[in-house]
Computed example of a mutant assay.
Amino acid sequence: MKMKSLTVGLLLASLMISGVVSAQQRKKTTRKTTTPPAQSSGYGSSGYGTTPTQQQPTQQTSSYGNNNQQQPTNQPQANIPIVVVKSTGNAALDTIKPSLRNDASIERNLIKDRQPLAYENIREDDAVYRQRVWREIDTREKMNLPFRYSADEDNGNQRFISIILKAIRDREITAFDPLDDRFTTPLTPQAVMESFSGGVDTVPVYDLQGNIERYEVRTKEVDPDSIYQFRVKEEWVFDKESSRMFVRILGICPVKPIYTSTGQFIDMSPLFWIYYPDARGVLSRFEAFNGKNFGARMTWEELFENRMFSSYITKTTMDNPYDRRLKDFIKDPILRLLEGENIKDKIFNYEQDLWSY
């Protein structure tokens, strides 16, 4: 009996020990499998994120980039060739094909033989009054629209800027530095064409797979209609021998507007100066547009000599000891125009006041 009771006691003790051990193992297993409650970030229940146990191991990224990420295939590389593409032409300088038949109802030969008349000589002792005036011609005005006549004729494009550029390219007119209106520094035709162009631009060329095949350097073409202002330097002289007031145009300078990359206007930039007395022979072979009578057109030399253009004064030697432009000390544009008209009246009144009635 004692042996049986001892055996039963040992069995009970072993069962109790095994129960305690199994309970501890179940408790450890529960701790391993139980996940802590997710933080209330608002992303777990919305589908934008998962709990830490559900997230897959990923590489860390930052705003500065990841070295393990693959570079895009269209990034420029050092071994991609660069090709310089020659300009196919300029709208202001394209070679115009001559007509193979008479493109008019009459034979027009006079325009080819026209020569400007020589200026009347003014002795230095007889020039008792002289004033220099700088003007600006805005071709957007209705009276100045002939400057923008864009038709093509046998002698080329009829825009005024195209006529000047063609004469410079053919070395019929010498261009001078735009920063000095005293005609001190001549420019080569190549330098003039570079200043007129819009520079160069590098354009990538892609293949069918979207990879960069090569880079092409192309010249930016400039619209000739964007040159809509011209500066004119002239001198008014009173000749006491003939008792007349003469005006002599000394130079003409085209002006190009400058814009930022966002299209904001900066300022007007002069391109070059030409000496007008040297250009009279060229301008006498080109006719200006006449919208009222196409058969009664005058030459460009006659247009300037007859003052058939509209302009406003921007600078003068009258009461200007500091050699400043009107906009340097008159900020209001309306007051600048009124001051320009006041200068015109002073020059006109000088001649009129010499007469007695």
Rank of each mutant, 00 (worst) to 15 (best):
M1C: 12
M1P: 11
M1L: 11
K2R: 11
K4Q: 15
S5I: 13
T7D: 11
G9W: 07
L10N: 10
L12W: 07
S14E: 07
M16Q: 05
I17P: 01
I17K: 04
G19V: 06
S22I: 10
K28M: 08
K28W: 10
T30R: 15
P36R: 14
S40N: 13
S41K: 06
Y43I: 01
G47R: 05
Y48R: 12
Y48V: 11
Q55G: 03
Q56A: 15
Q60G: 04
T61Q: 12
Y64R: 08
Y64F: 07
Q70F: 04
Q70L: 12
Q71R: 14
Q71G: 01
T73G: 09
P76M: 10
Q77N: 10
A78Q: 11
I80M: 11
I82P: 04
V85P: 05
K86F: 07
A91K: 11
L93N: 12
K97I: 10
A104K: 02
A104R: 08
I106Y: 11
N109G: 13
N109K: 09
Y119A: 15
N121Y: 15
N121E: 15
I122E: 00
D125K: 08
D126Y: 02
D126S: 15
Y129E: 00
R132C: 04
V133M: 04
T139N: 05
T139F: 01
T139C: 06
R140C: 01
P146W: 02
R148A: 10
E153I: 01
E153S: 00
G156M: 01
N157Y: 00
N157F: 00
N157L: 06
I163D: 03
I163K: 00
I164S: 04
L165N: 07
K166E: 06
A167V: 03
R171M: 15
I173Q: 08
A175V: 11
D177A: 13
D177S: 15
P178R: 10
R182G: 04
F183Q: 11
F183T: 05
T184M: 12
T184R: 12
M193I: 13
M193Q: 13
G198T: 10
G198M: 09
G199Q: 08
D201I: 10
V203D: 05
Y206V: 09
G210M: 07
E213I: 00
T219E: 14
F230T: 05
R231H: 01
K233D: 08
D239Q: 00
K240A: 01
E241M: 09
R248Y: 06
V255S: 06
K256N: 12
Y259I: 06
I266F: 03
W273Y: 14
W273L: 14
I274G: 06
R280L: 05
G281E: 09
V282L: 03
L283D: 00
S284A: 13
E287D: 00
G291Y: 09
E301D: 14
E305W: 05
N306V: 02
N306H: 14
R307S: 12
R307W: 08
S310F: 01
S310C: 00
Y312I: 07
T314M: 12
D323H: 11
D323G: 13
D323A: 13
K331N: 11
P333T: 07
L337F: 10
L338Q: 14
G340C: 04
G340M: 04
N342R: 14
I343D: 00
D345Q: 08
K346A: 01
N349M: 00
E351W: 03
E351R: 07
W355V: 05
S356M: 06
